[in-house]
């Protein structure tokens, strides 16, 4: 990936894939990126989620961000929202846990109980 042409080609490929995502309810990963989240490592966590999703070629999961939700001691906090299932909040997530959450929860549907701080 060196030039603008490469980026434009990737843009078209990405848009085509995203059309598929828009046609159905998608899974969402929401990371807390407030001041507390950032200080605790949320930037690396978002990066790890993006890398893991890209590596597995998963395009129907979106990664979004939210601010501080008031549980700063457990930051970085991550919500995994799968339509039709309870929203699961993981606490003290780091890059390695993020990759495991993708593999175990997002792909295989198994909640990683050890890191859960809340289930709604």
């Amino acid at each position: 990936m060196k030039s603008l042409e490469d980026l434009n080609a990737l843009k078209q490929k990405s848009l085509d894939e995203l059309k598929l995502r828009e046609s159905k309810d998608s899974v969402r990963i929401v990371v807390g990126v407030g001041t507390c989240g950032i200080a605790a490592g949320a930037r690396e966590v978002v990066g790890a989620f993006l890398e893991e999703l890209a590596k597995r070629n998963i395009s129907d999961v979106s990664v979004t961000q939210t601010g501080c939700i008031g549980l700063c001691v457990k930051e970085p906090l991550v919500d995994v929202v799968i339509p039709g299932q309870p929203t699961v909040t993981y606490g003290n997530v780091d890059a390695s846990k993020a990759r495991q959450i993708v593999a175990q929860h997002v792909v295989n549907g198994l909640v990683v109980g050890e890191w859960v701080v809340n289930k709604l």
């Binding site: 990936m1 990405s14 995203l18 995502r21 989620f49 890398e51 890209a54 990664v63 979004t64």
Partner: peptide
């Protein structure tokens, strides 16, 4: 772009 901001591969390339 409305949709590219959600595409992991694209975002990683932008970082690079």
């Amino acid at each position: 772009d409305k949709r590219l901001s959600e595409h992991p591969e694209f975002l990683i390339k932008v970082r690079g």
